[in-house]
């Protein structure tokens, strides 16, 4: 029973990792841009949710609001700064986004202090679900359902709509999209905001589960990297499979070996890379 509990926890956690990784992946796919500030957007999403609920907003208003604010800020940063550096080597992409991540992290500490805090589960989801002798927190069950719906929407958005076709076309050959008459500058800004918004949303959803603290961004960034390395960048299915895998491994290990749970994520990654250098799904 404890394992079922932990596997469910892992699925919830894994879906959040999936959201993070898809955001990172979409940005990289279209812009060929490594976003080391991705964790910072997750951090910001979590803190905005924390702040808004503290101000008396309902979680149901705070979560979408935080997501939109993060997406807006990211789009602004892209339009003002990042589009100037796409043509530079990766080193400078990393330098700028590491710098941005530092700025965000320090601003968060200035605004909300270094200690962090907790976000209560939203009203209506504060209790537990009881099925026979199985007891599970309602909010965690909600995140699983909600992220599953989101994952479906994302799939439809990327694979089934004109917008998704533009994004995929742009990631294959950006100049083609310009030739077809699309305003690639505006598309880049929108996609960057969208990807960062997904990270913000993951942060907002994670806040009631794990609380907020100023250094949660770095952890999220490295987990997103693990998911992307295992699952393959630009692969929706890869991100989903790898995200769930990482989440479940981490959760189950929490029971088996609490101190080593997070260590095992990285050991697992090292094993996958040693045995299957191209990652689980063998692309790129």
């Amino acid at each position: 029973m404890i394992y079922l509990f932990q596997v469910l926890n892992g699925i919830g956690l894994g879906m959040l990792y999936f959201l993070l990784a898809v955001g990172l992946s979409v940005i990289f796919g279209l812009l060929q841009f490594v976003n080391f500030a991705h964790g910072a957007f997750y951090l910001l999403g979590a803190y905005l949710t924390y702040d808004l609920t503290m101000r008396g907003f309902s979680f149901w208003a705070a979560m979408p609001l935080a997501t939109l604010i993060v997406a807006g800020i990211a789009a602004l940063i892209e339009a003002l700064l990042l589009h100037r550096i796409y043509k530079l080597p990766h080193t400078f992409h990393i330098l700028v986004t590491v710098g941005l991540a530092l700025v965000v992290q320090e601003l968060v500490i200035i605004a909300w202090g270094p200690l962090g805090g907790s976000v209560p589960a939203p009203e209506g989801l504060q209790g537990v679900v009881i099925l026979g002798d199985f007891i599970y927190p309602q909010y965690r069950l909600f995140t699983i359902g909600f992220t599953a719906v989101l994952a479906g929407l994302l799939w439809w958005l990327l694979e089934g709509t004109r917008l998704g076709a533009i994004v995929r076309g742009g990631s294959e050959l950006p100049s083609n999209m310009a030739l077809l008459g699309y305003n690639t500058l505006r598309i880049n800004t929108a996609v960057f905001g969208f990807g960062a918004g997904l990270a913000g949303l993951a942060g907002a959803l994670a806040a009631p589960i794990r609380g907020v603290e100023p250094f949660m961004g770095i952890e999220a960034l490295s987990v997103a990297f693990v998911v992307v390395v295992i699952g393959g960048m630009g692969s929706y299915t890869g991100a989903l499979v790898a995200g769930l895998l990482v989440g479940v491994v981490q959760s189950v290990m929490t029971t088996l070996w609490p101190e080593g749970a997070r260590l095992m994520i990285y050991v697992g990654m090292a094993l996958v890379i040693a045995l299957m250098p191209r990652g689980l799904l063998g692309r790129a």
Partner: peptide, 8 residues
């Protein structure tokens, strides 16, 4: 915070 701006 300043270091971040220096990097940019």
């Amino acid at each position: 915070l300043l270091l971040g701006l220096v990097l940019v």
